[in-house]
Amino acid sequence: MLARTADNLYWLARYIERAEFVARILEAAQRLTAMPLSYVGATNEWQSAVATAGSAKAFAARYAEANEESVIDFLAFSAANPSSIRSCFELARTNARAVRTALTAEMWDVINGGWLELKRFGNGPASREELSRFLRWVQETSLRFDGSAYRTMLRNDAYYFTRLGVYIERADNTARILDVKYHLLLLADEPVGGSLDYFQWAAILRTVSALTAYHWVYRENLKPWLVADLMILNEQMPRSLASCYENLVRFFDAIAQAYGRQGPAQRKARAIRTRLQNSRMDKIFQTGLHEFIGEFIADNNRLGAALAEQYLM
């Protein structure tokens, strides 16, 4: 297939995944700021939301203060922010239009319908209820896109490249929220339930839709190292770094098999997965959670670059 087609499919999937993640960040921030300060501490959740979305610099250049209004505007609706939900939907559709023939009718329907629907929400929600509706709608659109790709695409290179986009973006997103919130997970001695951070941990898990999963997996109260374990090493958790790399290796191998040869991207993906498989949470905490995450983000970006060089140019 054309390198550009693969590129469009890959980025299309990334933008949709990113839109969903930004919606989850906003949902979590909204929930935390609605709680009394005595439960969550005097942190600026809106500032942290911007940092988690990876847009702190661009935000600071345009707004004086991170508050509910400015952050929602910037992360959800701003045309100036290339990672805002609106920009993600627009970029996704631009990519989709460029590869119409590589998409199934169902996938095009989700993207095109989503883009038309987005106009209905205008430049911002009139109320908190409408914002909630909007954020739920974004997540549903992403689910529908994922579902229609899963159920309607031929299992060929086009499908594999969309999957690679999903998992590279997802790994980056999960790592980024850990990067911003890692300090909350380091206070390991706090009494359970009494900690100011308890609700923060819950919010982190919610952002990756894993709060319920946590209880099923560990059958324990929220403990920071287990939260980290779930998000980094647990292969059952679909948004964990380990699970993302499980999938990345699988789809890189599928491409290698289809084309009859492999290259640096395959080797890189396998190396990262091996590192995750050989890691243990207590070791990671000892050597430094922050460093571990920082290294992972850089590695994940390098994999993206290797993918681009090998297939998309």
Binding site: M1, L2, A3, T101, I255, Y311, L312
Partner: peptide, 28 residues
């Protein structure tokens, strides 16, 4: 039309000319 013809829909940036022969850039 590209879809109905079963041919690649290319743009200028997908093509490259080497030794007076036209190639398209593919994933392979």
């Amino acid at each position: 039309l590209a879809d109905k013809l079963g041919v690649e829909l290319v743009e200028g940036r997908d093509l490259v000319v080497k030794n007076a022969v036209v190639f398209m850039r593919t994933t392979e």
